[in-house]
Amino acid sequence: MWDLNKPRKAILRTGVIRDFDTHAIGVKTGLVIIYIVCALIAFVSLFPILWVFFAGFKSLQEFVSSPTLLPQALDLSQYTNTWSQLKIYNNYLNSVYHVAGSVVCALVFNGLLAYGLAILKPKGYKIVSSLVMFSLLMPATISIVPLFINIQNLHMGRFFTPLWLASGASAFYVVLFRQFFESFPGSIIEASRIDGCTSLQTFRRIVLPLSKPICVVVAIYAVNGAWSDFLLPYLVLDGTVWETVMVRLYSFSSQQTVNADDLMRAVVFAMIPPILLFFLFQKKLTENVVVSGIKG
């Protein structure tokens, strides 16, 4: 039996092992082991990332011939040389265009569709709804060849347009929005309708202002998704002046047009923005994985 009157600890144990267990020696050792394992998990997760940051300071000769984890010197010029020599800033800028347009499309088109499916629910909406759910599990990559041909036939290639619009057709974002909209109390929408608002006005005046949290979440996903995407961007943008960071990184690695050390630094450049984004919006991202992950 546990003592309810026992003074509470600052942090309550929430797992299988409860506070009352921790007195047993066996359990205490167990906890120590658990902490060691956790530290190991954190180490394994972070080590490759830290390593590549340090490896980026190596010169080509050092990179291919010295069997050490850390560089001999923290020579920042290695990074600056790669940055300017490979003109990665152009690709950064292109990626920014790609990301910005994708975020807008992701919010507008998926938001509106979810609004229709969750709130307006016009006759026959279930068909669309099932199709969207189906697409959630049947991703676009499978039909990349016909899609590619369509894009070419419409002469939409060689610019961001198809990439922007593609993020407006994401079943995942629709589901995120939809879950959120479905939690609205019906009375709010009803009230606005009684006030004589059209569906679009209701969306603008009522739904949108309330949806800031979900918009932020979708935007974060869209930023990360657009930044990391490379298959369609590669087919659409490769060889144009609009190559994004990922397209460039892929040509570096597949066509081997750069040396191994430069490739590793390019990897670092490709990783920096998502990592920064993550630390800025850490809470939002991890919280939402939980919500969305289960359904999507």
Binding site: S228, F230, S253
Partner: peptide
Amino acid sequence: YVPNVLPGLAAIIL
């Protein structure tokens, strides 16, 4: 969670 935010391509090349 951090590895999850990395671009897949970058992680693979790494």
